[in-house]
Design a protein around this nucleic acid. Structure first.
Lengths: 244, 244
DNA sequence: GTTTACATTTAATGTGATTAATGATAATTT
DNA sequence: AAATTATCATTAATCACATTAAATGTAAAC
């Protein structure tokens, strides 16, 4: 349910129902951005914690969800504590979203995400070139078309970009690999929100590269797909680094 | 808390306290192995669901945790349903553990995990060769020593093996990459539980390879570390395939 | 003086019941 | 026939109470 929210949060600023998921989101964000520092204890029982505007029981359910994501540990008498960052499930969609919040995200984490992309996506593209079905190809090509047609609208262009990379991952036909769509979309969203205004020429190069990648996958050239994806991410990284 | 349990579950068969985490585990396993088929609705309100031996409130918290892991969706009137497998967070430690349960795990999923290892680990080893600190190296070498000294005890050998790969990932100094330790340890545990008895010569080769990898990382030879890790996983895969 | 044993205390966990909101289905009306 | 309304089953949320378990402090014993 939380990641359901992560998709629609942009369109639904107000959450009328679902106190517990609101509490999960607020607490998760607070933990990620350091409002609740690591090692500190949260006084659940106190009404203070219920200052989130939810009842005690809803808060408890929220704490349980966050425990499941590794953000919190609970033990009698010692209280509910914030666990050290090395313990949270960085691959959880929600944790990724909170931790990559443009307001507070550390540049190091962004670089970690780029590194992950550089490792995952070229191989995923190569696998896609070997295994993509016609339906997969249709999705990839449709996403590319959307990218080409939405160069004016930044938001729409971003969504199409995410669709493109998601479709490639899906075409790899590896159930685990496909789940990196969350990490990638989180990175892309944070990237644009950080105001990385790219020049028109760079954008054109980027679009051109996506076209070549789609073509390589469609024609089954796995090695080419690998190399093109690697190049795309390399320039992406350089571009990020020189600004950071 | 759940992944805390995943570590100690072998040593603590009985869970005296923590009804909700017991419910999470039981339900999670049940969903993963198909006891509760995808798309089916769970009757929470009914005492039937409380046949797990826990109260309604604990069950509700368990449902929330599983929602957070993408296994379940809840909506008024339509009920709480099991989401399609493509929606679960396959990278969550608990979900991995449930889904890779040797009793019911599909061979395809095991192959997906090997494929993931082939993508991640060589690059992680290469990064470790570039970035490992002395403390990291000490951990890797200690894990190797443990592997060499526990060839008699299969269980201890497995734990040392897991420590080795975890240490390499940690030495990559990428906060996201490090979290693949769960996927890798899950795979390794499932692999040995599936009764993949390896001949003594293969085991010796494997140990020898770990030694070479540790040496390559210690001496900063990233390319060698990459290739050796790739080879190790390649033979691993072949070995798995010929039995599957 | 140090350690062990026990009782106390405090916060989390578990249970049950009740009320409110939500959304899908069915029925009614235009 | 389409649209609006009414109904009803189910989740969501909160309250109040009982239980459990661990940390602290006190006292006794070595």
């Amino acid at each position: 349910m939380p990641q359901e929210n992560s998709q629609t949060s942009a369109k639904r600023p107000k959450i009328t129902r679902g106190q517990v998921i609101a509490a999960v989101d607020t607490l998760g964000q607070g933990i990620a951005n350091g409002t609740y520092p690591q090692g500190s204890t949260l006084a659940i029982e106190q009404e203070l914690a219920a200052s989130l505007g939810v009842g005690r029981n809803a808060l408890r359910e929220a704490v349980k969800v966050l425990s499941g994501k590794g953000l919190i540990s609970t033990a009698p008498r010692s209280g509910t504590k914030i666990r050290p960052m090395s313990d949270w499930n960085m691959l959880d969609p929600d944790v990724l979203r909170w931790h990559a919040d443009p307001e507070t995200a550390s540049p190091e984490f962004m670089l970690d995400l780029i590194e992950l992309r550089q490792i995952i996506e070229p191989r995923a593209a190569a696998l896609a070139a070997e295994r993509a079905t016609k339906a997969d190809l249709a999705e990839i090509l449709a996403a590319y078309e959307d990218m080409a047609n939405t160069e004016a609208d930044k938001q729409e262009h971003l969504e199409a970009d995410i669709r493109f990379h998601t479709a490639v991952l899906k075409a790899s036909h590896n159930r685990v690999l496909s789940h990196f769509r969350y990490a990638i979309s989180t990175y892309l969203r944070a990237h644009v929100k950080l105001g990385k205004e790219q020049s028109k020429s760079i954008n054109n190069d980027d679009l051109e590269r996506h076209h070549k990648i789609a073509w390589a996958i469609a024609s089954g050239q796995s090695k080419t797909a690998y190399q093109l994806t690697e190049e795309m991410l390399q320039t992406n990284r350089l571009h990020f680094k020189e600004e950071a």
